[in-house]
Amino acid sequence: MIQSLLDGILTGAIISLGAIGLTLIMHMLRFANFAYSELLAIGAYAALVFDRLFSTLVPVLDEAFAPLTLTGALALSMVIAMVLTGLSAVVIDWLVFRRIRQKADPLSMVFASFGVALIIRNVIVLIFGHHAQLYSQEIARATILSFDPLILIKPDQVFVLVLALVLMLALHLVLTRTTFGFALRAVAENPALAQVAGVRLTTVIAAVWIIAGSLSAAAGTLYALTNQLNPMIGPVFLLPVFAATIVGGIGSVYGAVLGGFIVGIASGLALLVLPSGYAPAMPFLIILAVLLVRPQGLFGEDQR
């Protein structure tokens, strides 16, 4: 029970990171982006490329920070991957979504995102192949916190949780303490008025994509660090990340964070009552349960 709760929190941290970007995008551009979770894959693979590069070029970086399996090379690669994924998100928006936004209704965007997801996923397969890859062959060993009840925790997962919380805090500070944060919130509240007040819409949208892309890259890399890396990361995270966003309420960063933890914990606890075969349906059941009680999500404003 406590173990399941703990596992849920740790899985939830990654889902939360992914959901923050999605909630901003969905709120700002008003479409459900089915290609969004592919950003996690782009980030994780970008990190893989640079990790391999750095550990070959600078072997010193290949030392793991005990007790983590994280190496200096990977930490550095993750930062680069965050930047690159942020930029790719902007490029994808520029190539596809911006054009469709200009001429067709918002729902065409949703469908275009299906197409984009298909393209990204299969380009990744073409380049990297189907098989699973790992940053480190080392198996991360769990530390025993308590014997009765048995509670285990892996250092890597604690690191993931801490880093996720740090990134969330950083975002919180940006949103609440900077001019950019005000501009961003103003656009989200009322784009027309914000533009009258001198906020450049295109810049803000690009900034949101960069935030979304880099947080997704972090989520993807951290996921691959604690699990494995394969081209199916996108579809795997699609439903959990959407569930977290909807549960939290679209547009609410704090809602997305909480939503991620709720989805993670509920999926963990669900195995206590449901056979594990039903695991894929869990995020959906959570979405449905929340929407029935609060159609706008936990923290969302009523948009109807």
Binding site: V96, I100, A112, G115, A117, L118, I119, L126
Partner: peptide
């Protein structure tokens, strides 16, 4: 198979564009 999916994805996106 991957090339086929990329073609189909591109077709959808181009159509919408």
């Amino acid at each position: 198979g991957s090339i086929q999916y990329i073609l189909i994805g591109t077709l959808i996106v181009s159509m919408l564009l």
